[in-house]
């Protein structure tokens, strides 16, 4: 089933063309790895897909809902982890997730239940009453993932979810993403190519705002000699 259909997205800031003619289609069970050098337009594209930025032209449909026409209903289907996993640092983990849950229209028992599941599944139970500001980077990232998942969204968009994490935390994060990917559509942006090989079913490489490659990860690895690393360097040079 198609979850997200973005067609011919364009976005420029002044004279800079951040995104030009990017199209993405996301289906249930798919994990798209969104790759590209710094400044390629990954974050801008993700910001458009989540409704934070409006595209200059092009269309985005979230489960057949036009994002520009009905942003409230479209946004409610998406879970989003922005770059750097921002959160309200003066709140406790629990009260922050409570706040996001309520904003995501979860109520009473369901909210309590989802909160419990998040704290357990994402290993936040022991820090649930701690102020976010006092947490380590790894925990902060987990809080960001928990707020993106609290309403059990069909679409998950994660902007560099493993950035700054240690190898163990990265491994845990990948395991988590794999475990939830069966009945969702996930888009991950990353610099780490081994991550794409490990979790992504499809790879999209962009550079200077344009899609250079959009293929099944296994096909890329099968058809071309060498690993994703060398392919990436070759086409984004």
């Amino acid at each position: 089933m198609n979850l997200l259909e973005a067609k011919n997205l364009y976005k420029s800031f002044g004279n800079i063309n951040a995104v030009s003619d990017i199209s993405i289609s996301l289906n249930v069970g798919e994990v798209i790895g969104f790759l590209g050098p710094n400044g390629a337009g990954k974050s801008t594209t993700m910001k458009m897909l989540t409704g934070f930025l409006e595209a200059d032209s092009g269309s985005i449909e979230i489960k057949k809902i036009d994002l520009s026409k009905d942003p409230i209903n479209a946004k409610s289907i998406i879970g989003y982890l922005p770059e750097g996993a921002p959160s309200y640092s003066d709140m406790t983990v629990k009260s922050f997730l409570y706040f996001v849950g309520k904003m995501r229209d979860l109520k009473d028992e369901l909210l309590e239940k989802r909160l419990e599941i998040m704290l357990k599944d994402i290993n936040l139970s022991e820090v649930q009453n701690q102020i976010i500001e006092t947490l380590s980077k790894g925990y902060k990232r987990r809080v960001g993932i928990a707020q993106a998942l609290i309403h059990d969204p069909d679409i998950l968009i994660l902007d560099e979810p493993t950035d700054g994490l240690d190898p163990n935390q990265k491994f845990e994060m990948r395991k988590l993403i794999k475990s939830i990917s069966k009945n969702k559509g996930i888009i991950i942006s990353t610099h780490i190519l081994e991550e794409v090989e490990a979790v992504c079913s499809r790879t999209i490489i962009i550079s200077s705002g344009k899609v250079l490659l959009n293929k099944e990860t296994k096909d890329i690895l099968k058809n071309k000699k060498g690993n994703l690393d060398s392919i990436f360097r070759k086409i984004t040079k």
Binding site: K47, T50, F52, S76, Y80, P86, S87, Y88, S89, V100
Partner: peptide
């Protein structure tokens, strides 16, 4: 400054 505006404005809220 903290970037939470991005979080806030991708929630279903006007």
């Amino acid at each position: 400054k903290s970037g939470t505006i991005e979080l806030l404005m991708t929630l279903p809220v006007t």
